[in-house]
């Protein structure tokens, strides 16, 4: 026991300041929300050709990057100077259309209703369902349970069964082989139930979009309450998104 105590003293207190009193510390090369300035037609064409996931949209003559499809590989930013991946880690949104990143200024959108906070109070019990994908989303969700992030202090907890869950957090493009298990897990949760699509795969199929073995994400299978972009989402992005879904204020901005 003395050894353990000595170790504990040596290791020190390591729970991060984020999101309580500081923004997350992000690496200098972190790829956050893309920022687009004026794109010429030829630049746009080059971007569309190089983008592995078809994330560029031109609806209503407005060029945007769909962060629900983007895997933040930065290939477009390398061929085109008008695109930058900034430090904005607050990527999560409650509406699919809020995932479009065009040139306009950005503040993370807030939840429209506070039903979750009214019903669940200050806690959220999550059952995670892996449905295809590469396990990176799961790994970085697990990270929120480590003492560095400690999501438990905000009332967020992983539960073993959907029967105990307020929320189903889905990762992966929904492989055909997981479709039934995903639906059953959702049905097993008591109502009302919230759904988080965690990671680009869960939102749109990501790089597996169009695969005959996958369903292009959760859309059309379950109603999604929170979309968390990223491949995988940075733990700060995910935690900030979940807390906003719970009706808490938006995470601090990275300057």
């Amino acid at each position: 026991m003395w050894k353990a105590l000595k170790s504990r003293l040596f290791q020190g207190h390591r729970t991060g300041k984020f999101p309580v009193s500081a923004p997350p510390s992000l690496p200098p090369r972190f790829a956050g929300r893309p920022e687009i300035s004026q794109l010429s037609n030829s630049e746009l064409e080059a971007c569309m050709e190089i983008c592995p996931v078809g994330a560029f949209t031109t609806a209503d003559d407005k060029v945007a990057i769909d962060t629900g499809k983007c895997i933040f590989c930065k290939k477009c930013a390398r061929v085109c100077r008008s695109i930058k991946f900034g430090k904005e880690y607050r990527l999560a949104a409650m509406k699919r259309e809020d995932l479009l990143a065009d040139g306009s200024a950005y503040t993370p959108p807030h939840p429209e209703d506070r039903q979750l906070a009214e019903i669940c109070g200050r806690s959220l019990k999550i059952r995670q369902v892996s449905a295809g994908g590469c396990a990176a989303c799961e790994l970085d969700f697990n990270v929120l349970n480590t003492l560095a992030w400690d999501m438990g202090r905000f009332g967020i907890q992983v539960v073993a069964s959907p029967r105990h869950a307020d929320c189903i957090l889905v990762t992966g493009p929904v492989s055909k082989n997981m479709l039934l298990a995903l639906k059953k897990s959702y049905e097993a949760a008591p109502r009302p139930v919230w759904v988080i699509a965690c990671g680009t795969c869960a939102i749109s199929g990501g790089i597996y979009a169009g695969s005959p073995e996958c369903c292009n994400g959760v859309e059309g299978i379950l109603d999604v309450d929170l979309y968390v972009p990223g491949c995988p989402p940075h733990p700060a992005t995910l935690l900030e998104g979940i807390m906003r879904l719970m009706g808490k204020k938006s995470g601090p901005e990275v300057k």
């Binding site: 992966g172 492989s175 695969s211 073995e213």
Partner: peptide, 8 residues
Amino acid sequence: YQHRGVEK
């Protein structure tokens, strides 16, 4: 269950 058809 994780089959996504990667090789295809």
